[in-house]
Simulated scan of single mutants.
Amino acid sequence: MDLQLKNKTALVTGSTDGIGLATAKGLLKEGAKVYINGRHLAKIEEVIVEIKKDIRDADVHGIAADFSKVEEVVALLEKLPEVDILINNVGTYSPQPFESTDDEAWFQDFEVNVMSGVRLSRFYVQKMKAKNWGRIIFLSSESAINIPDDMILYGVTKTAYLALSRGLAKYLSGTNVTVNAVLPGPTWSAGNHAGMKKLAEERGISEVEASLEFIREKRPSSIIERFAEPEEVANLIVYISSPLSSATTGAALRVDGGVVNSAF
Rank of each mutant, 00 (worst) to 15 (best):
H40R: 15
S222E: 05
I136P: 05
T16L: 06
D102G: 02
Y161N: 15
H40T: 10
I215K: 10
K43D: 11
E46K: 12
N261S: 13
G14V: 01
I137S: 03
D84F: 08
E71P: 09
K79N: 13
P220R: 15
G258W: 00
L80W: 00
K52Q: 15
P184R: 03
L236R: 09
T187A: 09
K8L: 14
N113D: 00
V255S: 04
K33W: 07
N89T: 00
I51T: 02
M115S: 12
K33E: 15
A210D: 05
T249V: 07
S189A: 05
A194V: 06
D149V: 07
E231V: 14
G185Q: 04
I240E: 06
D2K: 13
V83W: 01
F107L: 15
V49W: 08
G258T: 01
F98N: 05
N192P: 02
V238W: 05
A144P: 01
D17I: 09
E207Q: 12
T13W: 01
G31M: 10
Y161E: 11
G257Y: 00
S189T: 14
D256K: 08
I147V: 15
E142M: 13
L21I: 10
S15A: 11
V83Q: 02
T175Q: 08
G134S: 02
N146I: 07
V47L: 04
V74A: 11
V118R: 01
M128C: 05
M151F: 06
E232F: 00
K43R: 13
D57F: 07
K197C: 08
S246Y: 14
T16E: 04
K43N: 14
A251S: 15
V70L: 15
Q108E: 14
H40M: 06
S143K: 14
V179G: 08
V238P: 03
A130Y: 05
S15I: 10
E202V: 09
K158H: 10
T13I: 01
G155D: 02
M115N: 12
G20A: 01
A210C: 09
S211R: 00
A24L: 07
V114Y: 11
V179M: 03
E111N: 15
S173P: 04
A252W: 10
G185V: 13
F98G: 04
I205H: 02
V255E: 02
I87Q: 03
S15C: 07
A251W: 06
T101G: 03
G155I: 07
V260Q: 10
L253F: 12
T187P: 00
G204Q: 03
